[in-house]
């Protein structure tokens, strides 16, 4: 008789880095993830380095070259104030990306925490919090945002937490539902029986199991938040001129669309490509994690 320990599994510690790279490989191995991620990364790179590479000053007004169609000197033409559309498009995503990125982090943080907490404790606290969330869901976000912006101003310090709050509500629901799937399992009861506190249970037992669902939902919320931010700018409550912003550029150029289409096409393509890119990445991300979840013993 021999010792029958199976030695088929490698004995290396699986670090966070390994896991992240495993997920990234899974994302890039599917076309939607490849395309989506490339778009998002391209946008982020452009947003970071655009001040260094743009050919013109984004706020320089020149009445002699108003509404020039695209040509060799102005790749995307000029707008009604004679500003270079190419320059403004490259730089137009900077604030939108900055605000929505940090807004999403805030949304994930508070939405995830409240959702997990409500799922764990249940009972009256859960009831009350969820009814409040429901009530907020009933308020049209755009009205509420306008109200906040009118009262507190349009600075990024106001927009980031405001957007973060409004887009965290959806994450609360997702996190709570994901928690309910996990909460009935015995390892939660084991932790309770050992005498762990609520926060220890949330951090050690629940979070690793609901993290994937929250991250995917967060990625989806990011694209919606981007659209919301651009809508605010479009309505004149986001970024104030002359700072370049896609929503603002679309708003300024829309009256002239019939004969100067170039001044709106570029920001529209930029904005939609980023949103599509985020959606595709979120989708591939979810599938990459889904595959990981169903992975059983190595065969």
């Amino acid at each position: 008789m021999k010792n029958t320990e199976l030695e088929t599994i490698e004995e290396k510690q699986i670090s966070t880095f390994d896991r992240v790279s495993e997920v990234l490989i899974a994302i890039f191995s599917r076309p939607s993830g490849m395309i989506g991620f490339s778009i998002v990364i391209l946008h982020i790179i452009i947003a970071i380095i655009s001040p260094l590479i743009v050919p013109y000053d984004y706020k320089e007004i020149n009445s002699l070259i108003m509404l020039k169609p695209p040509n060799e000197t102005f790749f995307f033409g000029t707008d009604q104030l004679g500003r270079d559309v190419f320059t403004r498009t490259l730089m137009g995503g900077r604030i939108a990306l900055f605000v929505t990125f940090f807004g999403t982090i805030i949304a994930i943080a508070w939405g995830g925490f409240v959702g997990i907490f409500c799922g764990l404790v249940g009972g009256k606290i859960d009831d009350i919090v969820m009814r409040i969330i429901d009530a907020f869901l009933a308020i049209p976000w755009i009205l509420a945002m306008l109200l906040i912006v009118v009262i507190l101003g349009t600075s990024t310090q106001v927009l980031i937490p405001a957007l973060g709050f409004f887009y965290g509500k959806g994450i609360v629901r997702v996190a709570r539902a994901a928690t309910h799937d996990v909460i009935a399992r015995d390892f939660i009861m084991a932790a309770k029986a050992r005498g762990h506190g609520n926060f220890s249970i949330i951090w050690n037992e629940l979070l690793p199991n609901v993290r994937d669902a929250i991250m995917v939902e967060g990625a989806m919320r990011w694209s919606w938040m981007l659209l919301a931010f651009s809508s605010l700018s479009f309505l004149g409550f986001g970024v104030s001129p002359p700072t370049p912003d896609w929503g603002l550029m679309i708003s300024e150029g829309r009256g002239l669309m019939s004969f100067a289409y170039w001044s709106v096409i570029a920001p529209i393509v930029a904005l939609s490509s980023l949103i599509i890119g985020i959606n595709l990445s979120a989708d591939a991300f979810a599938k990459a994690l889904g595959i990981d979840r169903t992975q059983k013993a190595p065969v």
Partner: peptide, 21 residues
Amino acid sequence: QLRGIQLIFQNPDESLNPSHN
């Protein structure tokens, strides 16, 4: 008192956290 009483569950698939090694 907590330390003194411990539980072992029926199904280890359920009682071990799948995200922990």
